[in-house]
């Protein structure tokens, strides 16, 4: 695959669809949560209003260059992650820029935004930011571990690191999905999924009551607007990777919407059931449960 200029508008289209889907889906999920609690919940378009409001704020402050660039790094990470992964299998339009690199690129690019954001938050000089980053990094290093093992297991299984090839191998029947052909790897990866979605029980990083509110404590206005945008893009970008690797990918937008929603809801369900872990508890959790499953997965392949 090589680059053609037409890919740029195609990629922007993908981005546009995912952005809007993300806005609505996260609001919908909040609404579901509210309904479960007996509330009416936010309007479905609330995310747009909040975004607009933050853009509309007139003043902002800056703690320095890295502080200013932090949200830029963050959103670049989110957008890049979407664009480095093919979105719709078989569609020429939504292959995005996946010619630039394979699965490994996607997996490591996940850290781009995290690192940039951490640096930006750090420059604010706020101890809560630093504490949040310390917690977040500690937790994510343990949480990503089962994913790495799961990915290793399936790339051994399919003998490729090319995402498109992995999706192709899962076509035909629902039983060709990695979920069924390699359930251990899938379970291992889902540990990581739940662990990195910033929902309970793994949301001590933000800990609103305790260290308000972790890394983004000092961010506001248009910075926050960028971060909000990323907040809806990034989880979907991550979920896309999981979908492609373990759940057969998507051949059309409707399938994409349904699958993303379903996978996303896994972390929501777990989140509403379990209370928050402390950081060392979640690290130990991943080492005690996630790691063995991952190890089993690579041994069984």
């Amino acid at each position: 695959m090589t680059f053609q200029w037409i890919q740029i508008p195609y990629a922007l289209l993908t981005l546009f669809i995912i952005l809007n889907y993300g806005m609505l889906m996260t609001a919908l999920i909040q609404k579901i949560g509210a309904r479960v609690g007996g509330r009416y919940g936010i309007p479905i378009w609330q995310n747009y209003i909040d975004l607009l409001k933050n853009i509309a704020l007139r003043s902002k402050i800056s703690h320095g260059v890295m502080f200013y660039l932090g949200p830029v790094f963050r959103l670049t990470g989110g957008i890049g992650l979407i664009l480095f992964v093919p979105t719709i299998y078989g569609s020429v339009m939504h292959q995005n820029f996946s010619f630039a690199g394979d699965l490994i690129l996607a997996l490591y690019f996940v850290f781009f935004g995290t690192l940039g954001m951490a640096l930006g938050a750090a420059e604010s000089g706020h101890p809560h930011s630093a504490i949040g980053v310390s917690r977040g990094l500690s937790q994510v290093t343990a949480a990503e571990l089962p994913l790495a093992l799961g990915v290793f297991a399936i790339s051994l299984q399919y003998q490729t690191l090319n995402i498109t090839d992995i999706v192709a191998a899962q076509q035909g029947s629902i039983f060709n999905w990695t979920l069924f052909t390699n359930p251990l790897a899938t379970v291992a990866a889902m540990f990581a999924f739940v662990g990195t979605m910033m929902r309970a029980p793994f949301d001590v990083v933000l800990a609103p009551q305790e260290i308000p509110i972790g890394p983004p404590t000092e961010y506001h206005s248009s910075y926050l607007a960028l971060m909000q945008t990323n907040r809806v893009l990034y989880p979907i970008a991550k979920t896309v990777i999981y979908m492609n690797l373990f759940f057969g990918g998507a051949t059309s937008w409707p399938e994409f919407f349904v699958k993303i929603f379903a996978i996303y809801m896994v972390s929501v369900f777990i989140g509403v059931v379990y209370p928050r872990f402390r950081v060392e508890q979640s690290i130990q959790f991943f080492l005690k449960w996630g790691l063995p499953v991952g190890v089993l997965a690579i041994l069984m392949v």
């Binding site: 660039l69 959103l75 664009l83 690199g101 394979d102 690191l161 090319n162």
Partner: peptide
């Protein structure tokens, strides 16, 4: 490679362009 591919220039350009756009 046997298993995957990597285009350093493309990666650099894509990331650079997105970064500048967001900035």
């Amino acid at each position: 490679s046997t298993y995957g591919y990597w285009s350093p220039v493309a990666v650099m350009v894509v990331i650079g362009v997105i970064f500048v756009a967001v900035l």
